[in-house]
Design a protein around this nucleic acid. Structure first.
Length: 948
RNA sequence: GCCCUGGUGGUGGAAUUGGUAGACACGCAGGACUUAAAAUCCUGUGGCCUUUGGGCCGUGCGGGUUCAAGUCCCGCCCGGGGUACCA
């Protein structure tokens, strides 16, 4: 009889639930600690072993902090809105809430089996009206606020209105404001609201029937589904995140995230410093405003470029160029974003016939239109400096435009010199200056002349906030005379209505337009778009603090007690989406006084991906049209390649559950076909199959090839890939728990390697951890499974093992080095087993320190050790430095850096005595060869190195 | 292209400030127990050489700094991630 993990684990999971062991409330007698996992989207496929990796790490940390006396908030919930449930609804008519609820139950069940210490009473779902009420509420606040650049924070829109009506604001005088109609006023305010409606070029995905945010599009293809995305002008809701760009950038310096992740965010925000410069356009009153990061190169500017969308083009193009220019603009406009991206190499552009003047030397400069300049960035116009910008260089070379070198250091006959170092030449009053000095000098001169100023641009764009979809939060907005107004807060939540179909209407309106009576009580139509996925996930961590509160998002008391998140664990794929939006959302709520911290996530760790090992079958297709077979051949088989292979797909993923020892047997293949009809065409190739192949060229195979073909089975090739259902390489945690138990799963996932690294799941290795768990059990139980813990006093040796382990385990958790933590336990248990230690004084503490990693086993042992309360209420033992103190040290002695022997010496020896002892050691004679050493380096408690 | 990462035995990985490279596991080989198997336990396991004392070589490659380099510096090569006309 051995440790019965499945019984024990069920017992404690039930106990924790029944006793509310992990429920937390505000408790001023303890310091708080907030540990959060990025909540999952509950997909139909359920969890695979990769998903819980981060959850296990955070759970260990949360349990550790509890033992250390913290009041730990450790909740879990669901990012429940999402495309798959809606797609399923379109196909089957099943309401997405039904699909979602089913998946949520499955997720909860799977997570419960792993033994997480979540406070399940705080569970939230973003699709729950009690929750999305506050998503809608926040949206209304965003709508009702603007960003005051003087105060650098969000302010009520009323403050802007009162300024406009009394003193005026920006370029609008109070008289102008007061003479505007109500509609005009509302339209004007849209330019300032933090949530606003605007016509904009958006990423429109026809297949999905919705617009997508920039981070949902990659290379002109939707991230979800992989459908083509085109640019389309549409009215959409936006969140004005851009005024927060600088604060989002600065905030990064105050938080403890991986530097690589901060770097991704910095790049995404994309701050660049430079200057806005006005160039007068010859023979007109127009001025061309451009943005450049290199005002120092202004004398090297040999042409200007406008984006095809630029509004000045029509006004300045000369009569003889008009037709060609208009033609070019038309073509550029019809070129989809995707084309523009895939066709980077193709240089196009057209001369407008107009010239502007360099304001510093009155030289005329030709103005061109080209699609390599983007309308949305800076002013949509640039001064081209071909000598010092690669893109301009290529353009100038292509169209034969002049290239003037103004910064020395490169060879402009070869390529542009883009570096920001060198001395200015051919540049009038800045000749001889360094780039840095010249930038400043030119900017100052332009400012003096009133034709330019220092400027900062950000790559970050306002976030498109509407989706033409059903399964999302409805906007709390109605329209009166075409003007949007927020609903009264008392009307929240505005519930998602039922619809007959989850598709757009015949007239192309979003699915909500199908709802009956989608109007306010007064009869005003409601907004038919819904919010995007990131709406519900941007502020969910705040709701956990007070999840049942019906009157507020969360109480002030809860916010003041729990503050922000001390530890956040999740995937780095959210670097430019969720993690930016959340920080923005949080800063806004901070501005309006709801919370105390500007940054939501103090420390963030990205866990790596657990990859799957796919099993790939190599093969070829053959047969008649209606009966095409895929013949599987061994990976080393090459004979087929010459005549057949390149015409047909050669590799197919085989579901790993049917593969044993890298082989697929004919019997398993049959079982597999029964489960997945998709594989009906598979067949293990026999020698005859290959010989019979058309064209029938050979009657026999080379001996070496024939010997690879076996009767009844075929070899497959393993390959490390992302774990996913479609690759048939998923490993389900339920199976692992069934076979080895949750504690083994938890420890093995940690043992696999550093948390932040990606690594393949290899089920073989789990045996080692499983043996360890059984070994722990045997420290407490004898061969007949009788509890064998004694009250004997521990020896110094045993105490040393224990305290060394306590120290290392604690340090490893604090450093998030969970893999070495597991090894530490293994070493400890190996040593205690060797010492035949079954003493209460040692094993009590061992159970406590092991409990964050293997909570079920630890609880069971704790109970057997006669404790009445859960082990999670125990106290993490302190290690005793006195016990750890050694009085000797085994010095490695090297000669010329090469280790030769070891010598054990007392620790209280001084350096001279150590040197003496080493040189007098008998082993030294052999290396010294009776000559005195040149030098002896003694590093106490580390090493001795003798130089000869 | 640019930015960020990483490269250590057959495999996953350890070495936290420059100080014993390969901890801990898996796998493999041999052994004990057993009628047999499973389970468990023991021994060995970086490579090459060896007179069995040990020696030489080894952390992607080539240099360097240092008494001492997986760790620091310079130049390459390869893998993973981010980004891509952002002026």
């Amino acid at each position: 009889m051995e440790y019965n993990f499945s019984e024990v684990e069920k017992k404690w999971q039930k106990y924790w639930l029944d006793h509310g062991t992990f429920r937390v409330e505000i408790d001023y007698s303890k310091p708080k600690f907030y540990v959060l996992d990025m909540f999952p989207y509950p997909s139909g496929a359920g969890l695979h072993v990769g998903h819980p990796l981060g959850y296990i790490a955070s759970d260990i940390y949360a349990r550790f902090k509890r033992l250390k006396g913290f009041n730990v908030l450790h909740p879990m919930g669901y990012d429940a809105y999402g495309l798959p449930a809606e797609q399923f609804a379109i196909q089957t008519g099943t309401h997405p809430s039904i699909t979602t609820e089913k998946n949520v139950i499955r997720y909860r069940e799977q997570m419960s089996k792993i033994g997480f210490s979540y406070d399940w009473s705080r569970e939230i779902k973003t699709c729950d009206p009690d929750y999305y009420k506050w998503t809608q509420w926040t949206f209304i606040q965003l709508f009702n606020h603007w960003y005051d650049p003087d105060k650098q924070k969000a302010e009520s829109i009323e403050t802007l209105i009162s300024r406009l009506s009394t003193e005026g604001y920006d370029e609008v005088t109070s008289a102008q404001w007061n003479s505007k109609t109500k509609k005009e006023q509302q339209e004007f305010l849209m330019n300032y609201r933090l949530a606003y409606l605007s016509d904009a070029m958006v990423n429109w995905c026809l297949e999905l029937g919705t617009v997508l945010a920039n981070d949902e599009v990659n290379n002109g293809i939707s991230v979800r589904g992989g459908h083509p995305v085109e640019q389309k002008l549409m009215k959409q809701w936006f969140l004005r995140i851009t005024p927060y760009a600088q604060r989002l950038l600065d905030g990064l310096d105050t938080i403890d995230w991986f530097e690589s992740l901060k770097e991704i965010q910095r790049n995404w925000i994309g701050r660049s410093e430079g200057a806005d410069i006005f160039f007068p356009i010859q023979d007109t009153d127009y001025k061309l405003e451009i943005f450049t990061t290199r005002p120092d190169t202004i004398f090297g500017s040999t042409y200007m470029v406008l984006a095809p969308e630029h509004e000045l083009i029509e006004k300045i193009t000369s009569a003889d160029q008009k037709e060609e220019v208009m033609d070019y603009i038309e073509k550029a406009r019809n070129r989809s974003e995707r084309e523009r991206m895939t066709d980077v190499k193709h240089i196009t552009g057209i001369f407008t016939g107009a010239y502007c003047l360099n304001p510093l030397n009155d030289q005329p400069i030709p103005i061109w239109v080209a699609d390599y300049v983007l309308a949305g960035y800076g002013t949509g116009a640039i001064m081209a400096v071909p000598a010092h910008d690669q893109r301009d260089y290529e353009f100038a070379t292509h169209f034969g435009l002049p290239i003037i070198e103004v910064v020395s250091g490169g060879d402009i006959s070869e390529s542009s010199y883009d570096a920001k170092e060198g001395t200015l030449i051919n540049s009038n009053f800045i000749n001889g200056m360094s780039v840095k000095e010249a930038v400043q000098a030119v900017t100052e001169r332009l400012e003096e002349m009133g034709i330019g100023k220092g400027a900062i641009n950000y790559r970050l764009r306002d976030a498109i906030f509407s989706r033409q979809r059903y399964w999302g939060e409805p906007f709390p907005i109605y329209y009166k005379d075409g003007i949007p107004y927020p609903l009264n807060e008392s009307k929240l939540p505005l519930r998602l209505p039922d619809v007959d179909k989850y598709l757009p209407t015949e007239t192309g309106e979003p699915p909500l337009a199908r709802a009956k009576k989608w109007k306010t009580k007064e009869g005003y139509p409601l907004e038919t778009s819904t919010m995007p996925g990131f709406a519900g996930s941007s502020g969910y961590y705040l709701r956990y603090m007070d999840p049942k509160n019906d009157n507020e998002y969360f109480s002030r008391e809860a916010a003041e007690y729990w503050q922000n998140i001390d530890l956040y664990i999740g995937g780095s794929e959210h670097a430019t989406g969720h993690l930016i939006y959340s920080r923005f959302w949080n800063k806004f709520l901070y501005d309006i006084g709801l919370i105390q911290n500007e940054e939501p996530f103090k420390k963030l760790i990205n866990q790596g991906m657990i990859q799957g090992i796919s099993q790939k079958a190599k093969g070829f297709k053959s047969g008649s049209l209606g009966d095409m077979k895929f013949y599987i051949i061994p990976p080393d088989f090459t004979y087929i390649e010459d005549n057949i292979s390149e015409k047909y797909p050669r590799w197919r993923n085989i579901p790993i559950e049917f593969v044993k020892d890298g082989k697929l047997t004919a019997m398993n293949l049959e079982l597999m076909k029964q489960k997945y009809p998709l594989f009906d065409d598979l067949q293990i190739a026999t020698v005859k199959d290959i010989i019979d192949l058309p064209p029938k060229r050979k009657s026999r195979l080379p001996q070496t090839q024939e010997s690879l073909i076996h009767d009844g089975w075929v070899e497959l090739k393993p390959e490390v890939e992302k774990m996913s259902k479609s690759k048939f390489n998923e490993v389900n945690p339920d199976q692992i728990i069934e076979e080895y138990g949750a504690d083994t799963l938890r420890m093995y996932e940690m043992f696999l390697g550093p948390l932040e690294q990606s690594k393949p799941w290899d089920t073989h290795g789990i045996e080692g951890v499983f043996r360890f768990i059984k070994k722990v059990w045997r420290l407490y139980h004898d061969d007949s499974n009788q509890f064998r813990v004694t009250d004997e006093a521990p020896t110094m040796k045993e105490l040393r093992v224990l305290h060394r382990t306590i120290k290392k385990v604690q340090e490893d958790i604090e450093w998030f080095s969970f893999n070495t933590g597991v090894s530490t336990f293994m070493i400890c248990v190996n040593e205690l087993t060797e010492l035949k230690c079954h003493k209460r004084a040692i094993l009590t503490d061992l159970a406590i320190i092991l409990s964050p990693y293997a909570p079920h086993l630890a609880e069971e042992l704790w109970e057997q050790l006669d404790h009445k309360e859960s082990i999670s209420k125990a106290c993490f033992p302190d290690f005793n430095e006195e016990i750890l103190k050694e009085n000797t040290f085994e010095y490695p002695v090297s000669f010329n850096g090469k280790l030769r022997f070891k010598i054990t010496l007392p620790l209280d020896l001084n350096v001279a005595d150590i040197e003496k002892a080493v040189l007098e050691a008998p082993e030294s004679a052999r290396w010294l060869q009776e000559k005195p050493p040149k030098r002896v380096i003694v590093v106490p408690k580390k090493i001795v190195n003798v130089v000869i």
